[in-house]
Design a protein around this nucleic acid. Structure first.
Lengths: 337, 337
DNA sequence: CTGAAAGCGCTTACAG
DNA sequence: CTGAAAGCGCTTACAG
């Protein structure tokens, strides 16, 4: 591997000049610049990023903390994967690489990794909000951005969907279809998206003048099995709902299964709306009507906010980004017969 | 940030000794070792990885090349994601981080990135075999491992499933169910998994003494739409098959849809077997019988092979790993009525 | 516009 | 077992 010294020697200039050709080209004459570039290409010179990082304190690497240890079931993953791809693409476009950090069980493990590797910033994805290691990192001076979950710190912000707005879209749509007994299967109450979607559900009912029946609110877990058992509870009610808003597609699919098992039909007897628009939603028969999150938007918003923090002189946390959601109508909703 | 010099000063030893405490502890006395460690913890000393890499040429980072540009449709992604998680976990366990490389359009882009970042190795996932940039990298002295696709080079190997064996499992299972008119929807012929699964299908038919009818072999594209149209072709045959082996779950799902649309039933009229065991396979109704690939095994095998190459002195490519497949029986196959 | 020199934070023979 | 010194490959004031 040719070093900057080799290149300088072959060009008959100092290493400082070679360095300038790559980092500050406008300061060196056209002639030397061309020459250095030509020789560099010929001998295959490549700057050593470790040496650059050591000298500049800038790694152009962003850490990704994705706790893949607790192997949870379900279809949440495709959602995360799309976000991950969007993030990587957006970061790539601005010259940053993404370093997937090894999981660590020490409380300062993530922060240590960030410092050791001179990471310019860190992204959290699919992590618990209460994880002490994340809090530690978020509260440090390392620029951080959390996806789909709130997080706070001097140089920390987050990107989240308009969960309440999406829930209102779902309820309003069901109402337009003539449904009046609209139940909901919620996410875990402790999660931000779970809580916000429930708020949106309640607000929409109120705005429509529909009664708020507490027996129509059943808590799920964002997974298929939780949706299934929640739906069974709803089916056992004296006054069966004619529509269900499930706060996640997986739960919606579990609910549909419970409905079918009970000998009822979707959407004729009970209409179902989910949340997320994961890929299988379009492939089921009937297709799942759902509230779509802007997955690519997550990546772009996260990259933009993170890089602006990285380039900002001191502690400034941009406001959280709230991404709009859209309703995707498929076969699990239809006008009430 | 405390440096090794700060730490050495506070401990009253040389930086060399501090370095040894972390890299070669058995060579320093218990006493100094304990002292250095204690002070290090107190002042929060963290070794700078860029400096270490510069000095040692070892980064403990493995590059991941995952071409996410060509946004292909479908359910292939969950499969890749599970592999990715397995890989990351296996690498983490051995102290390696995974650097997701920015996509590049230069032919030597990946190789340059590997060299610039002092990557210890590189993993390819979901890339075309004929990509010149990958060939360039595979033929370099950088240890490389390709997942689910063959690749060759002085320090390159790959991990792949026993595709032919899996296909035989599928055909034998259909035969046991009393099916005799067994068709197949293949993957693209140019792909290794596509070609091998077709071979397995043919071999199994021959071993069972069933005739090889060329009209029962229809090429698909690994995606839902390809499976759908391939199935329509099969349904149009004079002698309709009573079973289909689709070389991918997505195609199987497309095939089921086509069968249903034709007014036929799965598995009564036509039994269907897929390949991959992607998550939705278990969630459809009826569940999809399929040949499962060992997704976690990919990650472990890849990490093991890669690290052994990294630690091997010179050019040695371990033999490719071939992972066994297993049949997962669900609702889309049943004895012929 | 360019060069000499110091410095980034480590590791590792080489002596002792 | 430990220290002094050189070296890894860059960047960046500071002079000129």
């Amino acid at each position: 591997m040719a070093t900057i010294r080799d290149l300088a020697r072959q060009c008959g200039v100092s290493v400082a000049t070679v360095s300038r050709v790559f980092n500050n080209p406008e300061v060196v004459t056209q002639e030397t610049r061309d020459n250095v570039l030509r020789v560099a290409a010929r001998i295959g010179y490549l700057p050593n990023e470790s040496a650059r990082t050591l000298a500049t304190k800038k790694s152009y690497m962003v850490g990704l903390i994705w706790d893949t240890d607790h192997r949870r079931p379900g279809w949440r993953h495709p959602f995360l994967q799309e976000i991950l791809i969007g993030l990587k693409t957006a970061l790539s476009a601005r010259g940053y690489h993404l370093l997937m950090l090894a999981t660590s069980d020490e409380e300062d493990g993530h922060l240590r990794a960030a410092r050791r590797h001179n990471l310019d910033g860190v992204v959290f994805i699919d992590n618990g909000t209460r994880d002490p290691a994340l809090i530690r990192l978020a509260e440090s001076d390392v620029p951080c951005i959390s996806l789909d979950r709130p997080a706070a710190g001097p140089r920390t912000t987050y990107v989240i969907s308009d969960n309440a707005g999406g829930a209102r879209l779902a309820v309003n749509h069901l109402h337009e279809q003539g449904r009046r007994a609209i139940a909901t299967i919620t996410g875990p109450g402790r999660t931000r998206p779970g809580a916000e979607r429930l708020t949106g559900y309640r607000d929409a009912l109120a705005a429509l003048g529909l009664p708020a029946r507490e027996e129509y609110v059943v808590e799920g877990d964002f997974y298929l099995t939780g949706g299934h058992s929640a739906m069974r509870r709803l089916l056992a009610l004296d006054e069966r709902p004619d529509a269900v808003f499930a706060a996640g597609d997986e739960m919606a699919i579990g609910a549909i299964r419970a409905i079918t098992e009970a000998g009822l039909k979707v959407p004729e007897d009970i209409a179902v709306v989910g949340f997320d628009d994961i890929e299988p939603a379009a492939l089921l028969q009937p297709g799942l009507t759902t509230v779509a999150q802007d997955k690519a938007g997550f990546g772009v918003a996260a990259a933009t906010a993170l890089i602006s923090m990285i380039n900002a002189p001191a502690a400034v946390s941009p406001a959280p980004s709230v991404l709009p959601t859209t309703l995707v109508v498929r076969g699990t909703t239809a006008p009430r017969p």
